[in-house]
């Protein structure tokens, strides 16, 4: 077969679902950083979301088997740490898919800085971070826990429709 174009390869990558949130693809999440040819070998650079995310190996395997199914026999995956993954790279389409799936998408610029000023404001109830309920759209929600069912999520609760939901936290 002839060498597929880069655009074709990106299209194929966009078909690879995230193993834990299968409504979004690896390209929606922004974790495929780069593709290039090293001679006849296709090199795909992937960045981990969280350092210890157990899905990382599964994601690599899913990318590899999907591209092999599309006829790319000579393939290498490369792990890229820098620059570190950020939820700013989650595409608009990815955010819409997350919301439709019931996960509130990340609010950019609100990642933890470990700072005590933010903590003081939060404890005093002055946090201005409003996470809209993905089910009813209400902003009347509260955080149950900063950590959720996977490393990338926090647990929230809607005080209007009373449903619990996941928030894809800013990172």
């Amino acid at each position: 077969m002839s060498t597929p174009s880069d655009a074709q390869i990106w299209d194929w990558l966009a078909e690879v679902p995230d193993p834990e949130i299968p409504v979004v693809s690896v390209t929606d999440l922004g974790i495929v950083r780069d593709i290039r040819w090293d001679g006849d070998t296709l090199v795909v650079a992937v960045t981990p979301t969280y350092s210890g995310c157990p899905a990382t190996a599964v994601i690599d395997l899913a990318i590899e088997s999907h591209l092999r199914d599309r006829g790319i026999g000579d393939l290498r995956l490369e792990r890229r740490l820098s620059p570190p993954w950020t939820t700013d790279w989650v595409t608009q389409e990815g955010r819409d898919k997350l919301r439709a799936y019931g996960i509130a998408p990340p609010v950019d610029g609100t990642a933890s800085d470990g700072g005590t000023a933010a903590r003081a404001a939060r404890l005093a109830g002055r946090s201005n971070l409003v996470i809209a309920c993905p089910r009813c759209g209400s902003g009347n929600t509260e955080r149950v826990s900063q950590f959720g069912s996977t490393p990338c999520k926090a647990s929230y609760r809607c005080k209007d429709c009373l449903e619990p939901f996941d928030y894809f936290k800013c990172h």
């Binding site: 969280y50 570190p84 933890s112 470990g114 939060r122 990172h171």
Partner: peptide
Amino acid sequence: EIAAKALKEVSYHLERSSD
């Protein structure tokens, strides 16, 4: 680059443990 990656996670650790 390892530090930059880890720091993002540790910021959440510190926020939680201080809280």
